[in-house]
């Protein structure tokens, strides 16, 4: 059974972008390329649960076909895993819906099926979720206000790798920071599946001032072009899962 690859960007930030391109627009462009944009907004301890400035977090994820969560730093680890998993399921479901409409003709959403059938579909989705290859680019906002949250971010990423390793399917991850000296984004770790490398990367993180979220997102898309298993995708396609996979149903 040949399984395709799911591609995601995971943006960890604590506030609104204040420079450069509109991140909401950029993220919908990224979604067009078949890459989901997930966003986690990290709150300060004294912030309320629905601060005004962080609404951008939800908008970026919405237009990026991804999932968003706004959380306090202490639950960041759990959130990273949940968000990635849910976004992956969402992508697979999108694919399954396409398959369903091919089988039943016209528009068939999973929601239109009777609960019994939906349960069977769910099993297939879960099997795929476990076995599909996953490629996650982690983009960390290292602007000044994030400084005291870096320890939590490091822990969360460390923890996330542990969850990736538990899956049956292959995974690659890379880590980028923004802003960086003289550039919008900086690659901290190229694509790898080695969990031990996170620790070597993090001392390099130094927080800076501005938050050019849109521009940073745009830059990171390029990273998806030099992936180890590059033959698995076509550049201008919105097919996330290799179409050869669909024939097995």
């Amino acid at each position: 059974m040949h399984t395709g690859t799911i591609r995601q960007i995971l943006l960890i930030t604590d506030g609104c972008s204040n420079q450069g391109e509109d991140p909401i627009k950029v993220s919908s462009m990224i979604a067009q390329k078949g890459i989901a944009v997930n966003v986690i907004g990290v709150l300060d301890d004294d912030q309320t649960e629905e601060p005004v400035g962080l609404s951008e977090v939800n908008d970026i994820a919405n237009s990026g076909n991804g999932i968003s969560r706004i959380v306090y730093a202490d639950v960041l680890s759990e959130t990273v895993q949940t968000v990635t998993r849910q976004a992956m399921t969402q992508t697979i479901q999108g694919f399954v819906s396409k398959e369903l409409s091919q089988i039943f003709g016209q528009e068939t959403n999973e929601e239109d099926l009777p609960p019994e059938t939906r349960g069977e579909v769910q099993k297939v989705v879960e099997d795929l979720g476990e076995t599909v290859n996953l490629q996650v680019l982690i983009l960390v906002d290292t602007s000044a206000s994030m400084q005291h949250k870096m320890e939590a971010v490091k822990d969360a990423i460390d923890d996330f790798i542990l969850s990736l390793q538990a899956r049956t399917g292959d995974h690659y991850y890379s880590i980028y920071q923004f802003p960086a000296r003289n550039q919008v984004v900086k690659e901290l770790l190229p694509w790898t599946n080695d969990g031990k490398r996170v620790n070597k990367v993090f001392p390099k993180l130094a927080a800076g001032g501005i938050t050019p979220t849109g521009a940073a997102l745009k830059q990171t898309v390029k990273a998806f072009q030099n992936v180890p298993s590059s033959e698995e995708w076509r550049d201008d396609s919105d097919d996330i899962i290799d179409s050869s996979y669909g024939s097995s149903y």
Binding site: T82, E130, D159, L162, S163, A166, T168
Partner: peptide, 23 residues
């Protein structure tokens, strides 16, 4: 059995305490 744990809570997760994987 054998798959990645679907949902867990930090303090009760052996992965968090670095005493094993999350399979």
């Amino acid at each position: 059995l054998g798959r990645a744990i679907r949902e867990y809570t930090t303090w009760f997760d052996r992965g968090y305490w670095r005493l094993g994987d999350r399979r």
